[in-house]
């Protein structure tokens, strides 16, 4: 299949009258892992929310699989195979692990398929199986993150967007999360966008990198140059 699976052209979005990101052209190729880097306030989360539909763009367009989805509510995007793991534990804190996973597959009516999928996710994150009846809000940060990722996988997404999945996690857990992203790509044939501030752990899994600064793109391309410390300092 030619052409990017997800693409934005001149996308601008913000809150009230203020633009947080301006004129962004983003391309996600099939099977690719795109790493979006930038400081706090660079506009990374705003960009993801505008793509996914949680925020209405001010101008520009978003394309998925070749057709326009600009400003569509998330419900349609999820039904067509886009999943989003929001920053800070995208789970339902007062429901059980099992209920959370089932809700993750809300758009899918096929119960048998969902049961299978839950088993797969338990395979990836065994702790979720052990604690299936526990209230999700009582989990530790790392466990919540695994649940959040598990939820996002429930409907077998073709595009998975993760917003700062390592935030607040201990280093060994961060490694685990990055590993699982690689696993996801392999298992589900998904294309992934990872938004991160933590370069050390995320750079290794990236196929391409995009760096945002104060609402604009300042670098886009191969991850290799960013291994060079000097280059990093220059950018950040």
């Amino acid at each position: 299949m030619t052409g990017p699976i997800l693409e934005t052209r001149g996308l601008s979005a913000g809150y009230g009258k203020k633009k947080a990101v301006q004129g962004i052209d983003l391309r996600l190729a099939h099977g690719e892992t795109l790493l979006v880097l930038g400081h706090n306030g660079a506009g990374k989360t705003t960009l993801m929310r505008a793509i996914f539909g949680l925020l209405k763009p001010m101008s520009g367009e978003v394309f998925y699989d070749g057709h326009a989805i600009t400003g569509r509510i998330p419900a349609r995007n999820v039904a067509e195979g886009i999943a989003f793991v929001p920053q800070g534990h995208g789970i339902f804190p007062s429901l059980t692990v099992r209920d959370n996973l089932e809700l993750g597959g809300f758009v899918d009516a096929d119960t048998a398929k969902k049961k299978k999928r839950i088993e797969e996710i338990y395979g990836m994150f065994p702790i979720l199986r052990d604690r299936a009846g526990q209230i999700a809000g009582t989990f530790s940060g790392g466990q919540k993150q695994m649940l959040a990722i598990g939820m996002a996988l429930m409907h077998g997404p073709r595009v998975l967007i993760l917003d700062e999945p390592s935030i607040g996690l201990a280093p060994n857990l961060v490694g685990r999360v990055m590993e699982s992203i690689a696993e996801i790509k392999a298992r589900f044939d998904a294309s992934v966008i990872v938004v991160e501030q933590n370069i050390k752990y995320s750079l290794p899994i990236a196929d391409r990198v995009m760096v945002l600064k104060t609402g604009g793109v300042i670098y886009e391309g191969d991850p290799a140059p960013l291994n060079d410390h000097a280059r990093l300092v220059e950018l950040f």
């Binding site: 996914f52 949680l54 509510i73 998330p74 419900a75 995007n77 999820v78 039904a79 989003f84 929001p86 995208g90 789970i91 339902f92 804190p93 007062s94 429901l95 809700l103 993750g104 809300f106 758009v107 939820m151 409907h155």
Partner: peptide, 12 residues
Amino acid sequence: DDPEMARVIGID
């Protein structure tokens, strides 16, 4: 429980 998460998982 969480209206935004509800949107995220595809609830209209």
